[in-house]
C-alpha cells in the first residue's frame, strides 16, 4: 500500500469499521512484534498491544497527516505503553480482553488464550541469542532501549525513529551511538 492509499484508508477508518479492520490487520503483527521484542514477555505483549489499539481507536479521529505518519503515530503509542509497563511494578491492564469484556465489549468468537500463550512461549525460548541481548538491553536507560530496538529489531530508519520518539535526527544518531556503547560496556 503506497502512502496515498494509506492516507485514504486512515481517513476512512476514522468513521468506517471495515477500513479500521483493514488498518488493524496490517499493523497488528508489527505492533505486537515490536512490543514482544521490547519486553520478551508474551502476556505483557498481549496487554500492551491491546491497550495500544484501543487508544489508537479512541484517538483516531484526532489523527492528522501533518508532522507524523500513521505508522510512527501507532509506534509512538506503543512505545509510551511500553514505558509505562517498565515504570510501573504492575502494568495497568485496564484493557486486557477480560476487562474489555467486562466493560461491555463483546468478542464474537471466543478463543483459548492459555494454550495459545503456552505454545508461543515455547517458540520464544528458541531465540536464545535474542533473549540474551534483550536481557542486557532492558537494563539500559529507556531512551537507549528505544533507539536500539527500533533501529536493529524493527529495522527503522533514523528519520522514522525520530518521528516515533519525537526527537531530531541528529539526537537519534547520537543516542544510538551512545546506546551501542553502553551495551558494549555491559557485554
Amino acid at each position: 500500500m503506497d502512502l496515498s492509499e494509506e492516507k485514504e484508508l486512515v481517513r476512512q477508518a476514522q468513521k468506517d469499521p471495515d477500513a479500521f479492520a483493514e488498518l488493524y490487520d496490517q499493523y497488528y503483527p508489527k505492533i505486537f512484534g515490536y512490543v514482544l521484542r521490547r519486553t520478551a514477555n508474551l502476556e505483557a505483549a498481549q496487554d500492551i498491544t491491546s491497550e495500544t489499539f484501543l487508544k489508537a481507536l479512541r484517538k483516531l479521529w484526532q489523527f492528522r497527516w501533518r508532522n507524523i505518519s500513521f505508522s510512527s503515530w501507532l509506534y509512538k503509542i506503543a512505545a509510551n505503553e511500553i514505558s509505562q509497563y517498565f515504570r510501573k511494578a504492575e502494568y495497568k491492564k485496564s484493557v486486557s480482553l477480560e476487562e474489555l469484556q467486562e466493560q461491555g465489549f463483546e468478542p464474537i468468537s471466543p478463543y483459548d488464550p492459555e494454550s495459545e500463550l503456552i505454545e508461543a512461549q515455547e517458540k520464544l525460548k528458541q531465540y536464545q541469542d535474542f533473549l540474551e541481548i534483550q536481557g542486557k538491553i532492558v537494563r539500559l536507560p529507556a531512551k537507549y532501549q528505544e533507539v536500539i530496538t527500533l533501529r536493529f529489531f524493527e529495522q527503522k530508519q533514523i528519520k522514522e525513529i525520530a518521528e516515533i520518539l519525537g526527537e531530531k535526527e541528529g539526537t537519534i544518531k547520537s543516542l544510538l551511538h551512545r546506546a551501542v556503547e553502553k551495551l558494549r560496556e555491559a557485554d
Binding site: P29, L57, P107
Partner: peptide
C-alpha cells in the same frame, strides 16, 4: 488474540 481483540474493538 489478534482476532479476539479485533472483534472486541
Amino acid at each position: 488474540h489478534k482476532q479476539a481483540l479485533k472483534m472486541t474493538l
